[in-house]
Amino acid sequence: MTAIVEKPAAAPAIVKRTVSVKIRRFNPEVDAEPHWQTFQVEALPTDRVLNLLLNIKGYQDGSLTFRRSCAHGVCGSDAMRINGVNRLACKVLVKDMPDEIMIEAIKGLPLEKDLVVDMEPFFEAYRAVKPFLITYGNQPSREHIQSQAERDRFDDTTKCILCAACTSSCPVYWTDNKYVGPAAIVNAHRFIFDSRDEGTEERLEILNDREGVWRCRTTFNCTEACPRGIEITKAIAEVKRALLFRRV
């Protein structure tokens, strides 16, 4: 039988420490208002904040509610505010956190329960920018020809996982939820700068709306929040330039 590796031995001497996890709770079936509740959790330095939540749900309070799936930063389920900053709970390690960790739902979307928000307004804004390849006329019998340089032009914005960390960190979005928000612009950018796409004009017109790109105040919150490292503010600026000069 093969012994199973229990801990990443790359880390030096592994010492557990007790972390105080303060969570903003809200159960609409019981609570009139959200309230804070604190849990003590034993954690390894290499544990993710998501492990703390799983530990609380599994062994302390099964009613704690949050979304999670892949647990390594590619599915976008577990965006939340961790010590005041939007992060994916599965990409923050306990070793990088203080002894007290405050966790609450992302802002700007309707709170449903504990750390769960209604994602529908977010996806509605995404769908509004026509986030799909638009082509007209005859298609090639094989693949489209696209140079690697043309492909690289929009590489950064293909990384988006639609976690909403950016949009829900945007102060403009907090006060005006008609604003399409950074994530939708990122996904429009991904097609506007794709050499194969022929929908640039119609997409730019959508973003030229008063609730489109011009609402952006370049606060860079979105760029700092993005767990995929997308240069969102830059992408928004590129869409603004494309609108001003009608040239991509």
Partner: peptide, 20 residues
């Protein structure tokens, strides 16, 4: 693969611009 490319999938490319 060709279907996905036509749907918009951004494959890496060869120097000739084909799917790498």
């Amino acid at each position: 693969v060709i279907d996905l490319e036509k749907m918009g999938l951004p494959f890496n490319r060869t120097p000739e611009g084909r799917i790498d």
